[in-house]
Design a binder for these strands. Sequence first.
DNA 1: ACGAAGTCATGCGAAAACGCGTGTATTTGC
DNA 2: GCAAATACACGCGTTTTCGCATGACTTCGT
Lengths: 290, 290
Amino acid sequence: MDISWDDMRTVMCLVRGGSLAAAAQELGLNYTTVARRITRAESDLGGKLFDRLADGYQPTDAGLLVASHAEQMDRQVDTLMRELQGRDANLLGPLTITAPQLLIAHVLTPVIDQFCGAYPDIDLHVRATNDLLDLNRREADLAIRISRDPGDSLKGVRLTAQQSASFATPALARAIADDPTSPIDWIVYADYAAVPKNVDSSYPNHRIRMTFDDMVAIRAAAQAGLGVARMPLFLGHASHGLVQVPVLPPQPYPDIWVVAHRDVWAAAKVMAFREMLVPFMRGRRAQFVA
Amino acid sequence: MDISWDDMRTVMCLVRGGSLAAAAQELGLNYTTVARRITRAESDLGGKLFDRLADGYQPTDAGLLVASHAEQMDRQVDTLMRELQGRDANLLGPLTITAPQLLIAHVLTPVIDQFCGAYPDIDLHVRATNDLLDLNRREADLAIRISRDPGDSLKGVRLTAQQSASFATPALARAIADDPTSPIDWIVYADYAAVPKNVDSSYPNHRIRMTFDDMVAIRAAAQAGLGVARMPLFLGHASHGLVQVPVLPPQPYPDIWVVAHRDVWAAAKVMAFREMLVPFMRGRRAQFVA
DNA sequence: ACGAAGTCATGCGAAAACGCGTGTATTTGC
DNA sequence: GCAAATACACGCGTTTTCGCATGACTTCGT
């Protein structure tokens, strides 16, 4: 009784994905190959691992058992890859970084450009997303994050403090200045569906006009003159058609960090990027705090 | 950067075995296949894993790193296999047991015969060795051992207590009886190279005639009349041409246990064997203690 | 009710992996 | 010092694995 390690990986992916097609995509294979490997694994182990139902492969208890051990093996492989990467002294090959979309668009573009110019043999992949990619699973090698601490198994340095403030169109800003007591329409973030605290007491009336779950949309709404939005200073200042309004004085906002997994922190490519990024961000402190 | 899990296993086996041929044998492959897989692994990881020296493949630091993680994965596979085996309710297929050679030869043969007759669909493999096989690595499913406790991650029940005593040829036994003060020649076990403690005080003179590292050889020497040997009662009584001599009264000796890994303890085949073995041994208590 | 999108099974040809045989270099043993 | 043994590289033919195409079947949404 023996089983191929790759077949175990296949079982794991099939349990994860729930269908042959999904597993095949994760493995970069054709789904018929996945089906054949599952059949082979079952005959090797001498028992069914999946029930073939009309809507997909349903793992049996034995299948789940195999998959759970394969998950452990998968973590070993991830760790190995990170450790090998951390030992890599070469400044060539792939490097994947991730950062929030708007930070890339309005702040990081120059340093990314500078980096690509300085290290032409490194092919840089930039994943601009608001999702926190899993650095354990090597979804990215290095991340620039807006948060209050670097995180569990990650290592990081703080790039800069940040503040937020209120922004609106010039026309709306004038209207508010003319009549501070009129109700102020807010466009707020879904996670924080309330008028910001610490608003200036000169503006007593507030109401929430709309709630978005995306900062790009919030900014667009503010630019359309639909109301006042709270956003980090760097974003408000960089947005055409928006001016800062004194409704909300500059407030503390989560810091910007550069983080990486401990294992890859010392990798040459990761270090090279950090050494360019840190002074770049430190020199632009004025963009982030008043 | 990705690597096949089976290639990791190949790297592990090559580090273990030290040569392509050894690794290939462990994997059940031709050694050229091992060589190809190593080359592929190196190109996948983008670095050398082995130095090709004249006397074999010498792992680099990176190779050792890969192998160490593969070892962890190998343990996962072993655990999985044991867990699957522990869930196996069928009374068919392979079952491997191990016991000391002499215990099999002089005690266990009847119960083994009985078991094979009762479960003809189980193909029983018996590994008669004095080496302690690694039940974690599934070198055997069930072991009958002479020791003072079942062990770390293993589960076991005590089959019987045991005693040892002194044995010699009838001629030598008579000579000793005639003149208890003449020097008594001992044939002793290498691990315990001394005259046994607690010898009867009627026999004041002792000397070690020879030392062996194997009980079969000790018994043969005793049977050849070369001296007195200490051995477990079951062995002395079962050995032609040997009689018990009163030089060493019956002494405590390590118990006999049946042990298995916790994961496989409840497997149907393992239970079936235990359920036949335990009453068999309990009913033969007289063979082991005076 | 019916088409669209999803699931999986099966058969065939292409591609990759594999085992075998041969040849070379080094080490081991007599 | 020479033969045998061990360890590896390379090339060739076979076996196995794989991807694609086709078809059956179920589910979902209009």
